[in-house]
Structures are given as C-alpha cells and as structure tokens.
Design a binder for these strands. Structure first.
Length: 641
RNA sequence: GCCGGCGUAGCUCAGCGGGCCAGAGCAGCUGAUUUGUAAUCAGCAGGUCGUGGGUUCGAAUCCCGCCGCCGGCUCCA
C-alpha cells in the first residue's frame, strides 16, 4: 500500500497509508484526544483525508476553537433531535455561544420547557449511537431541492457566493453548515438543554419569530456540573432577590414599571457611592453642575435627539409649549458652557453631574436595576482643545480605573470603537476630527498600557469611543465605563472657544460615564459582592450580639461607643439563642459580627466573626474600633489589626 | 413590541379531573424560655387567589381580553 508523509506540529513527521483520514494521522502521531485539525489558518474536520507532504496541527479540548466546534456539534445533535421529535420543523441557524449553543427553528407547535427532557433524551440516544458526522459538498441546485420548503436555509443558500455549498450529515439528518465538526456524535457526552426562548430570524424584529432552544455541552460530566453550579450561584446572587431580601430597593408595577424606589439601606449605600464619586471628581478638576429633569423640546431639537431619539423620550406640554423629560444631560451641560464666551486659557472645562434621566424602554426589556426607565447617570462632559485630547482621555481612564479598583473590580476588557472607513458619509464630524480622535484614543490606551480590541465600524455616528467591560467576582462581564467623542453636538450647538489667535474654534467634546448609571452599577455591585458590602459601603458595619440578655447592656454600650466614633454599629437586642442571632446577622449580610458575653464584658473585648463564618478571635474593643475606622478610611475590604 | 413560561399571605411555595381548598413553612406580633457562633417552643394575626369579563346552580381551579413578572430576541446607561 502506498504511503504518505504528514508532518504534525509538535510531534514531527509520521508516515501513514495513503487514503487515511486526519484522525488516523492523529492516532499515528499519538496525539491524544484530538478533536479538530488545523491546516495553516484553516480549521478542518478530522474526517478529512490526509494529504501527502502537508503540515497539520491537532487541536484538543484545551483549545478554544476545538471547544467551540464541540458545542457546535452539540447544536447539530439538538437539531437532529428536533427533526426526529417534531413534524414540520424548519431549522434556521444553530451556532455555538461563549458557554453553550442554541438552535433557532420554526416549529409547527409551541415548544416549551417541558419538552426539553424529551429532546435531551433523544439527543442522548443519538450521541450513544455514535453516528459518523460526514462533510459533503453539493451543487446549489441540489441543495435547494434538499431544503425545499425551508425558507431560512434557502435564504442562506442564496447568500453563499460559491457555486457549491457544504452539508454535514449524521444518520438521516442533514444540515447546511460550514463546519467543521467532530468526527462523530459520540464525542458529545455531557450536555444539558437549559432554556427555550424566542428569537427573530436574523435578529430583526420585522422577521419571523423563531423558537430558540439553548443548551450547554462539555467534555466531562464534572465540567457540566461546575457550569450548572455557577449558574445556580449567579441565581443566588441575583440583585433582584438580594434587593428584596435585604430591603435595598423595590420596583413595583403599581408605581410604574422600571422605576426604582431606594429603601433606606439602599439609599445609604448609594449615598456613600455618590459622596465618594463627588469627592473624587472635585479632586480631579471637575466642576459639578446640576440641571433640571425637564426641558423645552427645542433644546433636544437642536441637539438632534428629537429627531433620532424621539421613540425613547417622554414628551408633554407646559402652557401649550412642548416639553420633554430629559433622556440625556449633554444638551444641558452644553447650555451651561455656552452661557458665555470661553477663552482657550480656561480649557479644559470639565463638567460633571449625577444627572437623572428618563427613557422610554419597551416593557419586555426591563430588568431589575440593570434596565430601568428612570436612572441617574454619572455623567461628565469635557470641553477641550485638540492639543489637550490625550491628557484628558488619560485623565478619564485614570479616574475610571481608580473607581473600578475601589469597588473591587480588577479585571476588564477594553474596546475601541472606530468608524467604518467604507461609509464616511454616515458620520458627524470631519475627516480630520475623526482621525485625530481615533489616534488620541489609541494613544491613550498605549500610554495607560491598556490592551484593547479595535472594533472597526462599531462607533456611533457622532464619534469614536472606548468602552470598558468589567468582570465581576463570578467572572461575568458587565458594561462598565464608556468614554466617547462627540462631533455632533459641538457643531449643532456651536460649542467654541476663542483661541490665542483671537479666532473662534470648535471645541472637542468628550462625553464620559464611568459608572454608567447608578442603578445599573449598583445592581452590578450587589451581585459582585453577593450582597455583602465592604465596611465603607455597608449600611451596618458591625453588629454586637450578646450571648444572653444579661450582657445586652455591654453590647449596647459598645454600639454607642462605635457610633460615637462615626461607625455604623448596632446591638442585637432580640431574645433567643446565640445561634439564632448569628444566623440573623449572617442573613442580614453584615460584614462583621461581634459576639460578647461575660468574659468579653470583663476584659472589654469582642469575639469577632466575619460574614461567612470566619472566626477572627477575641480582639480588644478599642483596637477593633481603630481597625474598622482604618478600613473605612482606605475603603479596603478587610480588617487589619 | 415579539416568542415561551408564570402571577395564591411580606417571602418561598402547596392546592388547579370546578363544590369544607383558601393552606404550610419562614418573616411579623404576643407569651414562655436566659441561651457561647447559621433556625427554642407555643399562640395570634395576615390573602376580595394580578385584573376585567365569560361559561356554570357554583371558579384560585375552565375560556377570552388586559396588566405585570421571568427567560430570550431587539435596544441600551
């Protein structure tokens, strides 16, 4: 039999019989657990025939690309089960996602959560049958015949530029798919269908509403369990549940959907955040301003919002004159800037405001504190000269990082959204302004040593921007600070300064929201901390628990002493067993509990316990007070004695 | 707004082949208990079963409309 030679990255050359597949090559090269191969830049199936003299790399589950293919094959398993169990299913698309997969389809009958176990069971049968997954290439005409009656697949076929299309077949199931895929269905072992939802064909609400089934797939049952446990943990931390249980905030339909009522403890924490935010802005040369919640529509007509943002605005009349509830603060800040002429010597001018805005959001999009109809932006606008751009941007990034770090967010992703060079006419601002701004943003990232992803064509029409996505304690990603250029408003409002040459020049305007909105940031923070705020934010920092009523006076005395020192301490006067009071303290998520009995009273000490159960031993009451004061002053999370 | 699910005491939920089906636990209140690190015991109080209509002798339970919530889609701070 003829032999061919294939060189395998990491293992050297192997000789195999001609006509074998890459899977055979992987075995010959003793590559364990290969799922996928790569030829140059192209990912290929292991079932592809090996070619003489080629170089391939094998990818195992450790490679993200392989895991994605793994999940993609799982989605085909789902599609296969769907076509087996339901008549008249028209498959649309079914990609892998960051931690799972989904398949969109048009079903003749409604599919709901109760159907998932049946689908899952069928998938399991198909996986256990270990059906070979085969790639085929067929002409478009044949493909059209194969998918006749399925408008989605036909639409996709028409968009393929080549004359042939690729199909993947497993058993009696065939799907239009670019691949690659795993060699057989038996590779997919640990999976679970997690949800059924609706989704528009191609994400466009003018199109058909399809049914989407979500699932997740892992190599090992254990990994799947971990993933499901992480989802449970996330559920446990849901800010809506914590918000209610800890009486932090409430939102109720009878008062208006998407409108937040801050209860005392929530308002307290929010106030701490605001105090910190304001101090830091003053320190960094911002001037705080305050503007009204409503304005004549004219202001927002000038800004252009009335034209392109009207659907999101609440409008009404005052004395027959049209007014709006403000959806943004920018026109107001510009109005203040424009109240008089500014010299270049005054720049940069930095205005900031915790400005409450209202936006019409569709009812289906509202979600706890994360998506509401009335919210307070930590808004800031910087008016500066072209020369000051990089310094100002660095200042914004610095402040953003400082704020995030203080709140315990230490890892994040940075994205730079630039305009689409193909569509220069779709943007406000001049060519020169865009180039300068995009370069300034890139330069800022370089200076601040921020690794960023450049997203071409993702900029909003009025200017390029930097977005920072933060990761919380569970590794989930949230929208964080955004720093945006605006070429639209300075032009529309004529935002200028008088230069050294005596002439009028247009300002560069930077719009920045670092926390985003207090509501959304608070929701993020609540989940990040799982409801246990660090002492500087916590409404109650320390609760003294007397072992019995006999030492209650000592607990009260301690609370009074700590309160006098500016700390937020209280004594638990409730009757009952110690264990019950400890439990109450834990449930209230108070960061520190101080148990006191006769021994402690005699020595003026406290048996200290951190939330979660860690025993910090017996500490002197005065030393505890000082330690707590230090923790609050430096906003750290833990006590140091 | 659209698809699917859901809406019973402050919270978590049971009851849903229509008639002693308006219940339980927790939280609250009252009393007993005096307690050493995640729930002491007993009693009391608490709901026009989201809302409007319909079917029926009779509806939490069946049907329809509306509102809201949840998971998504879309959009976004």
């Amino acid at each position: 039999m003829a032999k061919i030679t294939v060189s395998v990255e990491g293992s050297g050359a192997v000789e195999v019989p001609s006509g074998v597949t890459l899977l055979d090559v992987a075995r010959a090269a003793q590559v364990e657990d290969a799922l996928l191969a790569r030829r140059g830049e192209t990912l290929v199936d292991l079932t592809a025939p090996a070619q003489d003299g080629e170089t391939v790399a094998f990818l195992t589950y450790e490679a993200e690309e392989a895991r994605e293919v793994f999940r993609h094959t799982a989605s085909h398993l789902l599609a296969h089960a769907l076509t087996d169990l339901y008549d008249g299913v028209k498959l649309a698309i079914g990609p892998a996602t960051a931690d799972g997969f989904y398949y969109d389809f048009d079903a003749a009958v409604a599919v709901n959560d109760d159907d998932l176990p049946r689908l899952e069971a069928r998938m399991r049968e198909l996986a256990e049958a270990d059906l070979p997954v085969a790639r085929e290439e067929v002409g478009k005409a044949e493909a059209r015949k194969l998918f006749a009656g399925n408008p989605y697949k036909l639409e996709l076929i028409e968009e393929i530029p080549e004359d042939t299309v690729i199909l993947y077949r497993q058993g009696d199931f065939v799907d239009l798919c670019l691949g690659p895929h795993l060699p057989s269905t038996g590779y997919v072992k640990a999976f679970k269908l997690t949800a059924v939802a609706g989704a528009y064909w191609r994400g466009d609400e003018r199109n058909d509403m399809l049914t989407r089934v979500y699932g997740t797939a892992y190599r090992e049952e254990e990994e799947l369990e971990r993933h499901l446990a992480a989802i449970e943990e996330a559920k446990r931390r849901d800010h809506r549940t914590l918000g209610r249980d800890l009486s932090i905030f409430s939102i109720a339909e009878e008062r208006g959907a998407g409108l937040v009522y801050w209860h005392p403890s929530g308002a307290f924490v929010r106030d701490q955040i605001e105090i910190f935010w304001k101090e830091e802005h003053h320190r960094r040369g911002y001037q705080l301003v305050a503007t009204p919640h409503i304005a004549r529509s004219r202001l927002f007509e000038t800004s252009g919002h009335f034209h392109y943002f009207l659907d999101n605005m609440y409008t009404f009349e005052v004395d027959g004159i049209p007014y709006v509830l403000k959806p943004m603060n920018c026109p107001m800040h510009i109005a203040i800037y424009n109240s008089r002429v500014h010299s270049y010597r005054e720049l940069p001018i930095r205005y900031a405001e915790l400005g409450t805005v209202y936006r019409k959001e569709r009812s289906g999009t509202l979600h706890g504190l994360l998506r509401v109809r009335g919210f307070t932006q930590d808004d800031g606008h910087i008016f500066c000269t072209p020369e000051q751009l990089v310094d100002e941007l660095c200042g914004c990034v610095d402040l953003a990082q400082f704020l995030l770090h203080t709140f315990g967010f230490t890892s994040y992703d940075v994205e730079l959204s630039a305009r689409d060079p193909q569509r220069p006419d779709d943007y406000a601002g001049t060519e020169e302004e865009w180039i300068r701004a995009e370069e300034a943003l890139a330069e800022t990232c370089r200076l601040k040593e921020l690794a960023y992803t450049r997203r071409e064509g993702e900029a909003i029409f009025y200017g390029p921007k930097i977005d920072i996505q933060i990761y919380d304690a569970l590794g989930r990603k949230w929208q964080g600070p955004t720093i945006q250029f605006d070429f639209n408003l300075p032009h529309r409002f004529g935002v200028t300064y008088v230069g050294a040459d005596g002439a009028e020049h247009q300002c560069y305007m930077i719009h920045r929201a670092l926390l985003g909105s207090l509501e959304r940031f608070f929701g993020t923070l609540l989940e990040h901390y799982a409801g246990v705020f660090p002492p500087w934010l916590a409404p109650v920092q320390l609760r003294f628990i007397p072992v019995n009523q006999e030492v209650l006076p000592y607990a009260k005395d301690l609370a009074a002493r700590f309160q006098a020192a500016g700390l937020r301490a209280e004594a638990d006067a409730a009757d009952g067993k110690l264990a019950a009071k400890i439990r109450a303290g834990e449930m209230a998520k108070i960061p520190y509990l101080g148990v006191v009995g006769k021994k402690e009273q005699e020595a003026d000490t406290v048996a200290l316990r951190r939330h979660g159960g860690e025993d910090l031993g017996t500490v002197d009451a005065d030393r505890l007070q000082e330690a707590l004061q230090r923790t609050v002053a430096d906003k750290s999370g833990t006590l140091e004695f």
